[in-house]
Design a protein around this nucleic acid. Structure first.
Lengths: 366, 366
DNA sequence: AGGAACGTTGACAGCGCTACCAGCACCGAC
DNA sequence: GTCGGTGCTGGTAGCGCTGTCAACGTTCCT
């Protein structure tokens, strides 16, 4: 009737309250803390809201409450498969919660990250997820001064800003090399692209393992700042072969490179694993399907994103985790590409099928 | 001194105005329409804002102006490589503009899409990007009633809601089949997963091309609703072979499946392309690197996202494009996996290198 | 019976910004 | 000299919601 309406005809909380026969503030409480209402009023407000199709105005809520329900996420790349999985975990965890995700791409630049952080923080996010542990000093200061929970993801390191979830890329690389040693490989090359901090730590792990075995040689390492790709894997491997034709294994900083190395081997008619073993990193879905199947280091990417967002939301709601730093670990998934020379010189048909079953990863869904 | 401050110590527009010696409203105008100010005041406000480190409160702005600076993006998947590229294009276009991206995942469900749409629209987004042309009737109604520009992406169809950018999946599939016909292939299988509307239209294109040639047989088509993967490509191909051992080509609805088919061929020692030709769809980076290199239908994913966001922002700012429907086309990239039987029975070493250079796609960056 | 404690509710006063409109000075045209 | 136009500026009044605090009725304890 004479009911006041916003020009656009939107339903406001006041309308809901009027229909429910309560004050606006009571209706407001229904949405934030239903338990505070009596059962009768709760039902009345609920049905009134449903009847009118009420949707809260987030801008008004943010302005009045001096905080937003936005979780900021800073990741270095949108195309990297690794981050797709992490993101999916984050988005899945945010659904059903009242928080929404605001995503920004730092493009592997900590300066860009600092800039984005400043913008995010100005909007008072409810929480923040940042990638890695290599922020600028300025970023670090801002993060520590921020009055919202923060999760650092992708790796584990000392001095967490707040919470931290990831794994040790250094240890993972060492485990991969240990695996190759166990298979009798000695002259192991390293192939890496992009060389972001995490790839760098994988290289560090490789170097330390090789040095411990007295096998390290600088010319076994081929890296580039160029973004990774399958094609690049072949090119870097070609470089590696030119420098050191006698290698008997290649540890690739990621699976795309490993696939490129595999294709290059096929092109050069180098037998895998007989002549050269290949180990990748991340255990993307295709690794179990390749011929031969490719060994990789499995990382829990989906779980990392999902747990990070879940922990963050819990912390925002005042339930801080008992364990603020979580190591999700890794696992070397041994497949044909790095098996000992003596066993199956030709991969058995059934081998692939078995391997496929072994790696039914959550990250292969969706 | 006695200056009023918000509890958190944040600088407000009023502080900037005071320092600049102008009214708050004038300061406000500086940020929205600087040309409306005299040069002198413009400079005063600018330096005052910089001095105080003023950052506008977006919630207050949204509440007062009754509109947000958020572009809503609805995509069906976060993990699919195709959408990573599109998203990257969208995010790149949004940087430098004053609009921020709000992303939601419909998980290939138009019901979920409808629900998300309702939420988005309630927040009065500045613009909207939605995937595909198969919205529910309800969604369609909401979109048409929305008072913001809208871009439908990924494909072209009749009756655009507003703007539209994509290509014909039907025609693209027909072109792929025509290519295979030209190579002398006749018994061409179709392998598809997920079977979302766009994959369905690729199937339709395949069926129509095959029927025109009098070659269509239902048993040549193997599909599943399961999400796509490389492993699945091998499995579906195995099914296809069981049904029709005499096939001489496989058209895969995407590149992951094509890679799986290639690996399965290798496992079964089926020569590609001599016995069976393989054609994929999307032309992901690895296709040019595989052995043999894999033919695919190149689609302009990054450009699609980038152009969509650019057009949208232009439209929001009142500059509607002269051409609201944009067909970005596709291109069949012919490679070794579908070459005629007579030529190179063993792929030449140099072939791969050449192919690599041919496919320096923008989508392989980052 | 009196009072404290609890659960529940409502009034008030903004959150920081912008839409709207009025007002001012200045100009040229009549 | 008056008028209307133009360019710039400021005052007023919210946008829709929530924090704070007071007040209410009821229950339970002493």
């Amino acid at each position: 009737m004479g009911r006041k309406r916003t020009k656009s005809g939107k339903i406001r909380l006041a309308e809901v309250a009027e229909l429910a026969g309560v004050s606006p503030i009571t209706a407001s409480r229904f949405f934030r803390n239903p338990e505070a209402l009596s059962v009768a009023k709760r039902a009345r407000v609920e049905s009134a809201a449903k009847e009118l199709g009420y949707v809260p105005n987030l801008a008004a809520r943010a302005l009045a409450s001096q905080r937003t329900e936005v979780i900021g996420v800073l990741i270095p790349s949108l195309t990297n498969n690794v981050f797709s999985d992490v993101l999916r975990g984050i988005y899945d965890a945010s659904e059903g919660s009242r928080y929404s995700i605001q995503l920004s791409n730092t493009r592997y630049s900590i300066l860009q990250e600092e800039k984005l952080l400043r913008i995010f923080l100005a909007q008072k996010p409810a929480g923040l997820i940042v990638t890695g542990i290599d922020q600028t000093a300025e970023s670090r200061t801002m993060l520590e001064a921020a009055d919202c929970p923060i999760v650092q993801i992708m790796e584990i390191g000392p001095n967490p800003v707040d919470m931290m979830i990831g794994f040790s890329h250094y240890d993972a690389a060492r485990a991969a090399i240990a695996h190759l040693f166990a298979q009798g490989r000695r002259k192991i090359g390293f192939v890496g692209a992009r060389m972001d901090p995490r790839v760098q730590r994988r290289l560090d792990g490789y170097v330390s393992a090789m040095k411990e075995a007295g096998l390290f040689e600088q010319r076994l390492v081929v890296t580039t700042a160029t973004p990774t790709s399958v094609t690049l894997g072949g090119a870097l491997f070609t470089d590696l072969l030119a420098r050191e034709p006698g290698i008997d294994a290649v540890f690739c900083a990621n699976d795309d490179l490993a696939l490129g190395v595999l294709f290059e081997c096929r092109r050069r008619e180098i037998a895998v694993p007989e002549q050269i073993a290949i180990v990748g990193f991340n255990d993307l879905e295709f690794m179990a399907s390749a011929v031969p199947t490719l060994t990789s280091v499995r990382t829990n990417r989906y779980e990392m994103g999902n747990t990070a967002a879940t922990m963050l939301i819990e912390a925002i709601d005042g339930r801080r985790p008992e364990q603020p730093v979580l190591d999700l670990g890794f696992k070397v998934i041994e497949r044909q590409s790095s098996s000992s020379r003596r066993s199956d010189s030709r991969p058995a048909l059934s081998g692939a099928g078995t391997a496929n079953k072994m790696i039914a990863l959550p990250s292969s869904h969706d």
